[in-house]
Design a binder for these strands. Structure first.
Lengths: 361, 361
DNA sequence: CTGAAAGCGCTTACAG
DNA sequence: CTGAAAGCGCTTACAG
């Protein structure tokens, strides 16, 4: 096995190279000859086409295994209009790529799903407007990517509309802001937060505050919505003094908590674990204790740089499954057509640890 | 512009699709006709081949611009043996992918470099042995990736040898452990740490300790070496009580610092900023103060989840440049041949902030 | 400087 | 069930 043949200007070097890498130029034709059948038949075996006798199929498979033959990806792509490659585009509005554990987790989830499905995973990080423009004409064309995963982030990302209009198979990660129906995978942010808030109410908490995510992001909006709906369902008035905005970062959780403390909350739902961590730091600094004085619930349950003490009660995002479902949907769009649009909502798991306390006991 | 044509079973749907996406099937032939020249000439214009008259060249370029034509990547790849795609392989021995800010930074650096050079960036995360095996046969073959970037991590990663033997253009990120010469990009870990330690000595520190990285990683080994060499050059005996091992994580820095405190250090060099953060936490917990009682120097200067207080004196890794140089080297290997092997060492920048103090004043 | 033609390595009707 | 042949969209000697 080996890679591209370097373009040696020196023919001797090239020969040397080829001698050292004898598995070099195997083509379908070679396998056909070695197997004593035609190219067509070998191709059928490779593509699991039914019209091949069992005997021939097994023989050819054996030869392929022996020789380690792999079909040439470009040749395949050229004729089949499939590249078995999918791209993840992260828009430039994302400003926490380096610090939010969401991204490594997401990337890992998608990379893993791609690997299992024998897809190649390409990553496009938009740095600036220029990147977005050139990306668009490079990515959205025939024979490049079979499909695109796009991380929904900020309201008004114009890129989504352009991608949809381009007609490329597209799956949005998270809830899209667009009016039109766009295939996407999302997490049940609203319902899962409702569950968590209900739990706090059921365990005797009277003044539940929240540190929200940015209100121009879907998750920020939805998790706040879940908080509010849970209170409304329980006929508890919304107290604006118990709501403060954050940006998902530890620092914003810390600052937010300091704003909330005068309102005397006995529980806080933070829209990310990082913010929960920041909130706990603020609480500790004031000489208070979690969960004795204030219960804390986060969101994410990603692996953390510094684990919380006490262990954080949180909502776990099924991130690996997220990547997997997104890729599955994308393949379905490629193979079965873009219409009708698809939607999959995954559930977060509520995990009770040590940062919350039952105050009814 | 648009992407792959979905395989509609319903021909009406297909026609509808094509009608909505008229820029669909543009080929070299189309551009040739519209320009009134041959395919060959258009191809020469696209590939900046010199043998085209200025007049024709400009006309063809105009037509290409008007139509938004882009050559079909697979067709190009098939005939030119170049895919304009490079892959980053992260071996499975990496266990801090989710928590170490190095990886997002590295990925960003490489993605940016790829984007500037009009390369596509593919990511391969090895989950397990099985991944490594299948990856090898998928990736190391003609016509898939022009070249591979491989993150050097743990001593004894067998994958490197297999990759080298495969003959695929390969650049190692970091210092390789192999005896044979392998093209790589590295950071001047040893020298830069020496500089930092020398600074501590010059500013009156008498008992300098270190929290090292894992001693089966090149950076872990090299940064410890830098620490030791600086002391030796200044005729200061190495005191094992001032050296403790860590794993680059905040937690390991915290634990390491607690082990070092009895040895009464007046300065600590931590082999990563995360460990420096952990060390500062340990120091604070003991009622001591940075830099009043102990000076701290870290390594990395990546954006951090929670910035240090006081601001950390550190060595900044030029990570974007790192990705850029690696890709440049890779392209050179592809275009000019694998021999002779290349080596580029980038310099870390010593950044003095508030976590160190001049004790001679 | 330009074009006609061969060929890259596959897949897939088509004919048997 | 199998093979000969056409064709995917490019690049690149080759001939002029």
């Amino acid at each position: 096995m080996f890679g591209s043949v370097p373009k040696y200007t020196n023919i001797l070097l090239l020969k040397l190279f080829l001698a050292e890498h004898p598995l070099n130029n195997l083509t379908l034709e070679d396998i056909a000859q070695k197997s004593g059948v035609s190219r067509s038949t070998v191709s059928r075996v490779i593509n699991d086409h039914p019209n091949v006798s069992k005997k021939v199929r097994e023989h050819v498979k054996e030869v392929i295994k022996q020789t380690g033959y792999q079909p040439h990806p470009a040749a395949r792509a050229l004729v089949s209009n499939r590249t078995w490659t999918c791209g993840l585009i992260l828009p430039r509005s994302i400003n926490t790529f380096f610090t939010d554990p969401y991204y490594p987790c997401l990337i890992q989830g998608i990379a893993q799903a791609c690997s299992k499905q024998k897809y190649t995973f390409s990553l496009f990080l938009m740095e600036d407007k220029e990147d977005e423009d050139q990306m668009f004409s490079r990515v959205c064309r025939r024979g490049f990517m079979d499909g695109i995963l796009f991380q929904s982030y900020q309201m008004g990302d114009a890129l989504v509309d352009k991608l949809v209009d381009s007609g490329i198979p597209l799956v949005i990660l998270g809830r899209p802001f667009q009016k039109k129906k766009i295939s996407h995978v999302d997490i049940n942010n609203i319902e899962s937060v409702e569950t968590a808030i209900q739990y706090l109410l059921d365990t005797g908490h009277k003044r539940i505050g929240t540190i929200t995510g940015p209100q121009n992001t879907a998750v920020g909006i939805d998790r706040k919505m879940g908080y509010q709906q849970a209170l409304i369902k329980n006929n508890i008035p919304i107290d604006e003094a118990l709501i403060v905005g954050g940006t998902f970062t530890e620092e914003s959780g810390y600052l937010g908590m300091n704003q909330l403390l005068p309102a005397k909350p006995d529980a806080i739902f933070a829209a990310s674990d990082q913010m929960a961590l920041g909130a706990m730091r603020a609480i500790r600094e004031k000489g208070l204790e979690v969960p004795r004085d204030i219960s804390i619930i986060g969101y994410d349950d990603f692996p953390m740089v510094s684990p919380a003490h006490p262990a954080l009660t949180t909502l776990r995002q099924p991130i690996v499954q997220f990547g997997f479902e997104a890729l599955k949907m994308l393949i379905s769009l490629v193979e079965d057509g873009l219409e009708p649009y698809r939607q999959v909502i995954l559930k977060s798991e509520f995990i009770i640890r040590d940062s919350t306390r039952n105050r009814t006991l």
